[in-house]
Amino acid sequence: MLFQVLADGILTGSIIALGAIGLTLTMSVLRFPNFAHAELITFGAYIALAVLGLTGAFMGPLAPLSFGLPLILATVVAMAATAVLALLIDRLVYRKLRARSKKMTVVFGSFGVSLLVRMSILLVFGGAATYYSTALQRAIRVGGLFRVMPDQVFTLGLTIIIVVGLHLFLKFTRLGLAMRAYAENPQLVGIYGYDSERVLRWTWIIGAALAALAGVLYGLTVQIRPEIGFHLLLPLFAAAIMGGVGNVHGAVLGGLIVGLAESLSIYLIPPGYKMAVPFLLLLLILYLRPTGLFGSAKGAVR
């Protein structure tokens, strides 16, 4: 039982981690908590569903996974579409609000945007929960201790690959360096000869693409609902702040901690309160270690 709970927690945590990486990047580079980030997750999940609906499952699943090439293609399209949406929102709304003297105006705007995106999805796709595939998957038994679905293992593996890839990207590419630099001192990036608009653009693209991916993986391992993002918002923020804003590795560990805490909470509190666990963790971290568990520098991407 305990092992099953731990395994479930790690798997939920890996999806939270994926979303939190995007959030922590945009939060440190763009310097505001984007409450509409979670809606990008929902948007990605539904675009993939729509693309899958259009193309149909023209190939069978790649056993033992529940999905095949069509969903992978649909995910790529969803990531691109979500990036376009994020850039569009930035151009139409955030860019103008960021220039305002009252710093929180853009946060306020992000709430308005999140309502618009979520309700548009509800209007177009309806409120009922759906799935990418209704095919049954055979669970893998691990040493008689716990059972996992192949899709869940896939999700975990993909998260690890992305974290490693992002680490190398931030460490070794010029764009990655520029993103870390922008988080520290936006003006100096231009003086160094790097186009700071390009940094902003790619931060949105990467954050949105990761959000879309998190959405598809959530849809794959749980279900697709218009409230996916809304329900993930608090876990994502808790993970990002726990890991130290801007700290990619921290966000991953934060995501895993939030996921584990959520699933272990059944031993302590009735399951109805599970959604409040990230909030309690958040309060705890704000009281005890407000710069995050891993002592991130102010706003620095690492």
Binding site: R174, L177, A178, R180, A181, A183, E184, N185, L188, I191, Y192, G193, Y194, A297, A300, V301, R302
Partner: peptide, 24 residues
Amino acid sequence: FVPQTNNVFTSLTIDENLRLGAAA
């Protein structure tokens, strides 16, 4: 141009500062 203060990225290493400075 070298500004008076905050003219390097303190969270980046020397090498990273120089690599970014050579990005053009």
